[in-house]
């Protein structure tokens, strides 16, 4: 059992070491230790490369705060089932993001729940290295 876990850990290390090769852009700007859950209204879905962006307004303590949410390449997203018309202005969505280390109102999308309830994965490389904070 012990040796099995050593092998597994070694495999994980190799996997982590290989991670930079799987992505063109670094996601180190984002906090890997916590996530925040945004519930708000889509103001724009920017369907572009190198990355797509979801612009959204979130009401926090009675005031509207704007967030920019970075996704991945639209090529990767298409391979994961995303389409350019999957979001439109005014859609109410839930986004789980890794916040920007800079404190700016933005983050990296790890999971999006569409108005239909369907959950979309943007295919962030090494998404499992981001620690999820339980939703309040």
């Amino acid at each position: 059992m012990k040796s099995g876990s050593i092998i597994w850990n070694a495999g994980l290390l190799i996997l982590l070491a290989a991670v930079p090769l799987l992505a063109h852009h670094s996601f180190a700007m984002y906090d890997h230790t916590k996530t925040i859950t945004l519930k708000g209204s889509v103001t724009k879905f920017q369907w572009t490369n190198p990355h797509a962006y979801i612009e959204m307004d979130v009401t926090e303590k009675g005031a509207v705060k704007h967030y920019s949410v970075e996704c991945t390449s639209i090529n990767m997203m298409q391979r994961a089932g995303w389409r350019s018309n999957i979001l439109k202005f005014g859609d109410q969505v839930k986004a789980i993001i890794a916040p920007l280390n800079s404190g700016q109102p933005g983050g990296l999308l790890l999971e999006l729940t569409l108005p239909s309830g369907k959950v979309m994965d943007p295919g962030v490389p090494a998404a499992n290295t981001f620690t999820r904070t339980p939703e309040k």
Partner: peptide, 25 residues
């Protein structure tokens, strides 16, 4: 695949930064 709108950029210290904020609908 076209780099149509790259919001990431290098700042004066050579660090990767990102342009955030509301954009037109």
């Amino acid at each position: 695949y076209i780099c149509e709108d790259n919001r990431e950029f290098a700042d004066e210290n050579g660090l990767q930064k990102i342009r955030i904020g509301p954009t037109e609908r």
